[in-house]
């Protein structure tokens, strides 16, 4: 009886360790990227443009862009796109997202990110809550990561309960409900050109 109990306890502990491993792996990968971004930004020898292109390289290794693009459209609409439209949409989405993200880098100065214990959803999905400290205020930022063949990738960021992908989806849905796929793509192309101009 005692032995069985011991065995059970041992298996239980072991599974705990294994489970903890998965979320820590994801957290580790996110932390490294965040650290890299912060070191790049605080590097005084780089110009802003150099910083931006460097950060874009880093984000490529931590954001799961194809999945994000797919999610921002939603399964239903995604299935209505033909392969060429899908490709163009994905590329436009990535470009617009990067513009959006990189645009924010100028604002980053004395902010600090505090990591909190990651939450395991399942083996391939981890949520990592963090707190962004900015000017005496705290903002909750939740990184949602999924396991892909290339390792852990972010598929969504939730800031103060506002999911970024969700806001994209609402906009795309709204356009697709009243218009054609081509309308959405045109709007995205226009936005891309607008960003390049500014």
């Amino acid at each position: 009886m005692k032995r069985i109990f011991c065995l059970l306890l041992f298996t239980f502990l072991l599974s705990q360790v294994a489970v903890a491993g998965v979320e820590l792996e994801a957290e580790e990968s996110l932390k490294t990227s965040v650290d890299k971004v912060i070191t790049t930004l605080s590097d005084k020898e780089l110009t802003m443009d150099q910083k931006k292109s460097k950060v874009i390289e880093i984000t490529k290794t931590v954001f799961g862009f194809p999945l994000m693009a797919k999610l921002s459209l939603g399964k239903e609409h995604w299935s209505q796109f033909n392969p060429e439209q899908r490709e163009e949409f994905t590329n436009l989405f990535i470009k617009l997202f990067q513009d959006f993200y990189v645009d924010k880098l100028d604002l980053f100065n004395d902010e600090r990110i505090v990591f909190q214990p990651p939450v395991l959803e399942n083996e391939k999905k981890v949520q990592i809550p963090t707190v962004l400290l900015s000017k005496g205020k705290e903002y909750s930022m939740l990184y949602k990561m999924s396991k892909t063949k290339n390792g852990w990738r972010i598929y969504d960021i939730e800031i103060e309960g506002v999911s970024l992908i969700h806001t994209y989806r609402s906009q795309y849905n709204h356009i697709l409900e009243s218009g054609e796929i081509e309308d959405l793509l045109t709007k995205m192309r226009e936005k891309k050109i607008e960003n390049e101009g500014s």
Partner: peptide, 19 residues
């Protein structure tokens, strides 16, 4: 950053309030 700022703000507001 939005292609439809109105919908963006509306969605962000609703999500934030729900939270």
């Amino acid at each position: 950053g939005a292609i439809d700022p109105y919908i963006m703000v509306q969605d962000a507001y609703m999500q934030n309030r729900t939270k």
